[in-house]
Simulated assay, not measured.
Amino acid sequence: MKVLVMKRLLPLITLLLCVNALPCQSSDIKEIQWDNLIPKLPAQDNPLAGLSEEEVDFIEYIIYLREFLPKEVTPENQEYYDEVNNALPELQKKDIDVDKIIADRRNRNSAVNTELDNQEIKLAGYLLPLDLSGNAVTDFLLVPYVGACIHTPPPPQNQIVYAVSATPTPYEVDELFKPVSVTGRLQVKSSSKELYLSDGSSDINIGYSLSVDRIEAYRP
């Protein structure tokens, strides 16, 4: 009787042993770098090719003023507006269209990698609270370098992630731009968030959102 039972159980035992011997499946979490958030785009001709370094520096300066000067002309910024208005006609004579360069850069900087949509990812970066009034955060910006979005032009929106904790437990932050590693579900989702600074506020355009399951301290 025992022999008969063992014969009948032998296939099942063999199957269980085989299953237990299988290697563990790899995690579905994809560890990515900031470059992975930038989609592969067709090569584009450089409109400043062939110019001297001094000419390029001047044009980049005019582009910066054109893009980031306040819309309202004031006595404080009148000098910069005059620089731009004097430079644009001269640049147009050289077939350099500053506004087109700005528009092309914005289009490329807003492009996102749709292949990462709804993927479970892990990404290291620097945590920037949207509200700087407290030490505990449940939502924040994740940026690729220290100083991003504060007193400088923000990174391209495909280099900014709006992160929201999937749990109500806040994450304690004892410094600005705290290096962290975050894990969660990434979504391709454009948005704009208001970042409150000590000297005012600023609207930040964002290309991704992340539902955060885990936040860990990170050492760059």
Rank of each mutant, 00 (worst) to 15 (best):
M1E: 13
V3Q: 15
V5Q: 11
K7E: 09
L9F: 12
L10I: 07
P11G: 01
P11T: 00
T14E: 11
L17M: 09
C18F: 15
C24F: 11
S27F: 07
L37T: 08
K40L: 10
N46W: 06
N46D: 15
G50K: 07
S52P: 04
E54S: 15
V56W: 08
V56H: 02
F58D: 08
I59G: 00
I62M: 08
L65P: 03
L65K: 08
R66P: 05
E67I: 02
K71G: 15
Y81D: 04
V84E: 10
V84Y: 04
V84R: 08
L91D: 01
I96N: 01
D97T: 08
R105P: 00
S110A: 15
A111D: 03
V112T: 15
N113V: 02
N113H: 06
N118Q: 14
E120W: 11
E120G: 10
E120C: 09
I121C: 03
G125F: 02
Y126T: 05
Y126L: 06
L128G: 00
L128H: 01
L130D: 04
L132R: 12
G134H: 11
V137A: 08
D139M: 09
F140V: 04
F140L: 06
F140A: 01
F140I: 06
L141S: 02
L142V: 10
P144F: 02
P144W: 00
C149F: 07
C149V: 08
P155W: 09
P156V: 08
N158A: 04
N158T: 02
I160N: 00
V164E: 13
V164C: 10
T167S: 13
P168V: 09
T169L: 11
Y171G: 00
E172I: 08
E175T: 09
K178C: 07
V180R: 01
S181W: 01
T183D: 11
K189S: 15
S190N: 15
S191G: 14
E194G: 07
L195P: 01
Y196R: 12
L197G: 05
S198P: 03
D199T: 12
G200I: 10
S201M: 13
S202V: 15
I204S: 02
I206A: 00
I206L: 08
A217E: 14
R219H: 09
